[in-house]
Design a protein around this nucleic acid. Structure first.
Lengths: 224, 224
DNA sequence: CTGCATCCGCTTCGATACTG
DNA sequence: CAGTATCGAAGCGGATGCAG
């Protein structure tokens, strides 16, 4: 209903009026990979509480950022998807992810770890990587399929299998997390055992390696 | 104290754990232009309530994003400033501002309008503008001085007068707002009357013109 | 089973008052 | 000026209920 606003004639404040509430940008994060159903969203946002999710979706719909669509039969299920305007939030999420990478460290006590989130992190680190040739990769994380496409400097992730990928990468969520923590290096014999690559091995390895945090001298010294 | 977190091993969620609460990114917006005192911050964040501001600053200090510093005598006042890590939020704020520009429209009933905010908007629109030669401009908005520097593709705003600016631009907050709404065009006779430019007139006009919203066909048709 | 609405205890917010 | 104290209102998280 009557959302809380900042009442500032400022572009940042206006943006936060619409997407600044708790959970809202994470809903956008989920939907950036593709349309999702209510329960899928809830599962990707552990702890949200159904009423808050429903409220946020209603607010976003009213703001013209989310559209509710009924899939054609025989699916006939309702999905939420981002509008064109909301897809303009991609750079915001990317900037946040870029900055947040430095805070990622490793999973805490009761952190949830979803392959979906790390695939998006992968797209961000890949963009920052020195050379990113145009290519498409399919990632199968715990039997869930994602695609990461890089096309003239932009890298974007999406739900679902890729068509004609340069490589198909199969691994588990834990393996993806191990790459993000730096516990698993690429290339390495252990990585070869945990990750199956079908197709352009070099490109796939470069993609996965971009997720590995940069070790500073301090990091190495503090290593135990 | 114990801030509310998302408990997700995801770069976006981690970032929002630290800067996702209400007001926090707006505090960063204020401090990105330079160090500020408590009351200056409060004045730039109308409606925040002093206890919330104090709490946020304490949280940010504990997160290593804000440092409290006592100015050398005779000032001897306490200022808050962003740490190096927090200055990494600049792209986040820029992305938000970029996206929020489309929501800006015009000031609502009880919106506050601060020149400070629009100067930052100016820096964002200038960056997106087609050609941005290296230059420094001083903006005097209602007797408050700002500087906008563009240097190889990056444009940043800061508090205070510029040294050796290419031009000095003097105008009021209302005039700046009129540019943002599109009510004032550049160049135009009315603009010449409201804006004083000392130095590189062409560059200064190009800078100011970048703030003018792009009128779509729909906008023009809907105009009344 | 999905997509919510309702209720409840707790936290957070906003506004004002007050203090060194 | 730079906060802390206080208090009613709003928002959140979790559980439960229920209609399609």
């Amino acid at each position: 209903m009557g959302r809380r606003r900042y009442h500032q004639y400022c572009p940042v404040a206006r943006a936060l009026d619409v997407v600044g509430e708790r959970w809202t940008l994470l809903i956008a994060r989920e939907l950036l990979l593709g349309p999702r159903r209510f329960t899928d969203l809830a599962e990707g946002l552990p702890g949200i509480g159904s009423s808050v999710l429903a409220g946020r979706l209603a607010d976003l719909e009213q703001s013209g950022l989310v559209a509710k669509r009924t899939l054609p039969p025989p699916a006939a299920s309702v999905v939420y998807e981002l509008t064109h305007q909301a897809r303009g939030l991609a750079p915001v999420l990317a900037a946040l992810a870029d900055w947040g990478m430095n805070l990622l460290d490793r999973p805490h006590e009761n952190d949830q770890v979803h392959g979906r989130w790390l695939v998006q992190g992968l797209a961000v680190t890949a963009k920052s990587a020195p050379s990113t040739p145009d290519a498409t990769y399919e990632l199968r994380v715990d039997n869930e399929a994602f695609q990461v496409r890089s096309h003239d400097g932009r890298v974007q992730a999406a739900d679902g299998p890729a068509s004609n990928p340069n490589a198909t990468i199969t691994l588990t969520t834990d393996t993806l997390a191990a790459l993000a923590t730096g516990d698993l290096d690429i290339p390495s014999p252990r990585a070869d055992r945990l990750i199956a690559i079908d197709g352009d091995t070099v490109g796939a390895q470069r993609l996965l390696a971009s997720l590995t945090p940069i070790r500073t001298i301090t990091d190495t010294a503090e290593q135990r």
